[in-house]
Amino acid sequence: MAKITFQLNGKPVQLDTNPNRRLLDVLREDFSLTGVKEGCGEGECGACAVLMNHEIVNSCSVPIANVINKEIVTIEGFSQTHRYDILRNAFEEEGAVQCGFCTPGMMIASESLLNKNANPTEEEIKIGLSGNLCRCTGYNMIIKAIQRAVKDGDGTW
């Protein structure tokens, strides 16, 4: 067991747990943050993506021991922001959501991308999404949604 302290969705949290657990399981089991999904469990699909210090990571591949003193934001935390509202609206308007299982991860990937590059090219968007698998949409509508968010959110990122 180990004491793990970190910031979760803007609040400090502390837990006494086995350090050999995945961040994904801690988020889902201990904090009921079920917007974080497990699709593959091996860092390929991005359904479990969260922000760690503002950058996308796959929570299935991050041991909780590595999260000490980091800032973790899940879709539940991100959904409280203005940036989220812009992206959500764009995703809805462009039809970027089908089954929805990859969608929270796609939102995290979008935020991580735009946070670093407020005006990405189409190729940069594709690279930004390249670790997030979607089997429903063929990605086009997700790419368009991000382009719309860039336009709608003028200056937000």
Binding site: S79, L87, G100
Partner: peptide
């Protein structure tokens, strides 16, 4: 879509 918002929010 009916369910888009709830899916996006997780």
């Amino acid at each position: 879509k009916t369910d888009a918002a709830e899916k996006i929010s997780g």
